[in-house]
Amino acid sequence: MPGTVLLLAASPVGRGCLVDAASVLPVLAAVPPAVLSGADTANVVELADPLEPQAVLTRLRAAAAAPGPLTVYVAGQLQLDRRQRLPHLALARTTPANVRYTALPWHWIREELRLRPSGATTLLLDLHADHETWQWLRTGVLDSGRNNAVYGRIAPPPARRTVAVPAYMRAVATILRSGHRPPPDELHQQALARAAADAAGGGAVAAGADLVLTAPGPVAGDPHAVIAAAVQAGRHGDADALAARHERAAAHAYGPASEDALHWTEVRADLAMFAGDPVRSCRAWLTVAETRLGAGQAPQAPAVEAAVDRAHHQWGRIRDAGRARELGAPLAALRGRVPGSREGALDHVQRELSRLQTQG
């Protein structure tokens, strides 16, 4: 099956630029697509210094929807938005003051890759953090999704008035230009070693402060992989039963509002969607949203907004008017608290509820 490759290099124009991210694209583009992907053939999408986060999201969404293995190469810089203090990939127009509006929220990447088959996605990242983000990374985690293999590094901000180079990604590209792609974990280790050697050979001090990213993704026997295999085989009941067991175990061990328990509730919501059961999926997402809010999470928190958005989406797919009315009331109540980024979402629910009432 053909693979898909997304090459994304982004950094701000002007004084806010920490890394010349796009400089690595010609080296990556010289690598044969099959080697970039690790598949026999591959489609390659290249984004160099994009301007708009929605444009990046569109390309990312298309890549995530493609069957077969997906490899995402990202070089760029991370910045926090001032309102929610969440990591974003800075784009060409990004400044510290407008991160929320001009940069790509990192959780968009995680969310778009969320429904891909377990173990089918690899991310190779070479990122530089600004000072605020570097401080945030002392306690925060750059979450790229637990079903994906993630390798790379996050470097601290370079010296003042210095623009860094994506040395790790350049090392990856140089290794791949040999025409052979090692397994991702080996490629990662070779790239780290080569980048360190190149830095030493150039008279620079190797950046021992880098945050190295090594997450190989699900392994054989991982419940996510087992569940994904059951879904692919059409055994939706078996998949949900396994997820339900893990949900109960996590709730018993850590509490029903714990991230572990909520993760499995979210998995079950997705499984219901795959099984073509929007009622069950909507109800599960409503539960997730209400539990998160009840635990004190803010209405604008990404996990809360995402849960309400998904409940809304699944509600729109319910064809039984009675069930739609039943779930529409709690959805409208949630939309009143969590309007989300979708303009007019509450009005849409209220209009649909009014229409459903006329159907008796």
Rank of each mutant, 00 (worst) to 15 (best):
A329R: 05
D49Y: 09
R146A: 12
R83S: 08
A206E: 15
E132V: 04
A173K: 11
G221F: 07
P183S: 14
T94Y: 02
A207T: 14
R283C: 00
R177I: 00
T287N: 02
V27E: 14
Q54T: 14
D260W: 04
V172A: 02
R335D: 00
T133Q: 07
L262H: 05
L47M: 15
V74Y: 00
T102S: 13
V141Y: 08
V19S: 01
G322C: 04
R283Q: 07
L115A: 13
Q300L: 08
C282Q: 02
T287C: 01
R93S: 07
L211F: 03
T162C: 13
P117N: 12
V44N: 00
A289T: 01
D240T: 09
A253N: 08
A66D: 09
L113G: 01
P156Y: 08
R116T: 02
V231Y: 01
A257Y: 06
Y73S: 05
L60I: 07
L80D: 02
G255D: 07
A345Y: 08
G140W: 06
P278F: 05
R93L: 13
G316D: 07
T139E: 09
P166F: 14
D185A: 15
R268G: 00
A257W: 04
L353R: 14
W315G: 00
W108P: 00
P299Q: 06
G340C: 06
V349T: 10
I154E: 00
A207K: 13
A230T: 00
S23L: 12
P2Y: 03
